[in-house]
Every structure is written in structure tokens, then in C-alpha cells.
């Protein structure tokens, strides 16, 4: 991996792509994701700011246009572990969320919806720019955190993670006000910048890990379809928040599928953006074509 990093050290990731494809194609999905993240915030904020109520509540549980309930599976799992049975609307809400993310793509929540993503993307961009190489986080930590938190919720009888969860704290603070809860996102930023690369979204966040598990059967995938065009610039590794998902798809042995199977992939599409020879593309999981 050190060779991979040094390759992108003297040039910023995406420079070749901008030269080759133009600025729009080199930043397309990054821009679209920012638009998506901000629009979702605006759906919640239009009510309190302009009196136009579209989505009420927050990412833990919401009601859109008075008819569509959406509930966060991990938050509700904690509630269930405290042996409390919710109302039907929360059950419907979680069913809608499970269906959508299981069908489309689990971690598109992380890259297209979650507000913390903007902070962690910025941290990892700064890491690259400043050449910070320090730190690492334990592997699979997030997948261990899920059962630990659920067990703690069962023991204490309270939704343990909701006291510290930067995802819900940040979103709630942005929508309902409360600047100190935003300290959670600042802590995540510092953690990602100095202590562990891609530390929060890539190693710790049990909410994202839950969506990764939900997304196992999902349809939308990134494929390294044109892998024969790969010029080994390694910029995809540099920008990818879950770079361990790339090698099998990109450099897999003869007959290996070019589809990124690992649902740790957040489907953010940055690899598609920064790749000058256009190796990657969005496709569905059954498209195993390789060029």
C-alpha cells in the first residue's frame, strides 16, 4: 500500500482525469452526492426555515409529506433490544428503509445521505493534501460494535448509541438547532484527520456497518468493467474510502467478476470520477462483463 500512496503523493488525485475528461466528468459524482446530501437536509429544513413542510423529524425517524414514514434500522434495533415494542409507523418506516437499501445499495446511505460524510470526505482530502500518514483503526471494529451496542442496550435498557452517535447527533443538531452536538462531527473530523485514515466511516460507524449488511443483496454496484484500460495510477485507491474493496474487482485473476462484491463499498463513485481511462462504471450486480 505504501507504493500506492506514494504514487499519488506528488500529484493530486484526479488531475489526470480532469485533463483527460474535463472538470465535470472528473467531479460528476462528487458534485451529485453533495447536491443529494444538501437536498436531503433541505427537505428537513424547509419546514422550520420557510414553513414548507416536506420531511419532518430526522434521520432516526421521519415522516415525509405526512405519508411516508422512514426509520433508521440500527436505532430501532436498539429500541427493540430494550424490550420496547414500537408503534406500527416505526415498523413500516424501518421496512421501507430495509427494502430500499437492500434493493438499491446499502451504503448509498453513507455516501449520498449521511451528513457526516461531508466532514469525513474533507478530512481524508486534507490528509492527502497535507501528506498525513499517521494512525490506523482496528479492522472489522464496526461489525463488532453492532452486537456490543445491542447487548449494552439490552442490559442498560436505554438506546446506548444514541447518546454518542455522531450521525444522528449531527443531523439533529443541523435541523433542530444545537451547536454543541455538532462537536460530535468535529470529533469525527479530527479522528479521521489525525488518528485513523477513513477512521469513522470506514472502521467505526455501526450505522454504516448496518447499512453494509442490509445491502448484501443490492442491485446497484460499481464495476471495473474496463479493467484492461487500467494504467496503474492507483488514484482510485487513494480516493476510495474503502480501498480494500477494489483489488479483487480490478486485478482479479482470470474469470473473476469485475463487480465490486464487497458491500463495504459506499457506491460513492469517486473511483469512476478520478479514473482517467474510465475503468469504472455504475452497473447492476449481474453485469459481469469485462472489457
Amino acid at each position: 500500500m505504501s507504493a500506492v500512496h506514494s504514487a499519488s503523493a506528488h500529484d493530486w488525485a484526479g488531475k489526470a482525469a480532469v485533463a483527460e475528461k474535463g472538470r465535470w466528468l472528473a467531479y460528476r459524482y462528487l458534485v451529485l452526492r453533495r447536491i443529494s446530501q444538501v437536498s436531503i437536509l433541505l427537505l428537513f429544513l424547509s419546514g422550520p426555515l420557510f414553513g414548507v413542510w416536506i420531511a419532518k423529524g430526522n434521520l432516526s425517524s421521519s415522516l415525509t409529506l405526512g405519508v411516508l414514514p422512514l426509520t433508521d434500522p440500527f436505532a430501532l434495533a436498539q429500541v427493540l433490544m430494550t424490550r420496547h415494542w414500537p408503534e406500527l409507523s416505526a415498523v413500516i418506516g424501518v421496512a421501507v428503509v430495509l427494502t430500499f437499501y437492500a434493493a438499491v445499495g446499502g451504503r448509498i446511505f453513507c455516501s449520498w445521505v449521511c451528513p457526516v460524510n461531508m466532514a469525513t470526505d474533507t478530512a481524508s482530502w486534507l490528509r492527502r493534501r497535507l501528506g498525513i500518514r499517521t494512525g490506523r483503526a482496528p479492522v472489522h471494529l464496526r461489525y463488532w460494535l453492532i452486537p456490543c451496542i445491542l447487548a449494552a442496550s439490552a442490559i442498560t435498557g436505554v438506546t446506548v448509541w444514541e447518546w454518542v452517535n455522531p450521525v444522528s447527533l449531527t443531523h439533529r443538531a443541523l435541523i433542530f438547532g444545537g451547536y454543541l452536538a455538532l462537536g460530535a462531527v468535529a470529533a469525527v473530523f479530527v479522528y479521521d484527520l489525525l488518528i485513523a485514515p477513513h477512521g469513522w466511516c470506514g472502521h467505526l460507524c455501526p450505522v454504516g456497518a448496518t447499512y453494509a449488511l442490509i445491502g448484501k443483496p443490492s442491485l446497484l454496484r460499481v464495476s471495473a468493467q474496463n479493467s484492461s484500460q487500467c494504467n496503474d495510477c492507483a488514484e482510485c485507491y487513494a480516493v476510495c474510502p474503502e480501498s480494500h474493496v477494489i483489488p479483487i474487482a480490478l486485478k482479479g485473476k482470470e474469470g473473476a467478476s469485475p463487480i465490486i462484491q464487497n458491500t463495504d463499498c459506499t457506491l460513492c463513485g469517486r473511483c469512476i470520477d478520478v479514473c482517467a481511462p474510465e475503468v469504472f462504471l455504475y452497473t447492476h450486480r449481474f453485469n459481469h462483463k469485462r472489457v
Partner: peptide, 21 residues
């Protein structure tokens, strides 16, 4: 690796509980 992660996860959860309680 997994043992390390399991221990860290327990510590993180314990920390969250200490904040919560």
C-alpha cells in the same frame, strides 16, 4: 485482529454506556 477489534468495540460501547447512564 478480530480479538483486538472485539476488545476495542467493548471499550467503545462501555464508554458510550458511561456517557449514557
Amino acid at each position: 485482529q478480530n480479538a483486538t477489534s472485539a476488545c476495542t468495540a467493548s471499550l467503545v460501547t462501555a464508554g458510550a454506556s458511561l456517557v449514557a447512564l
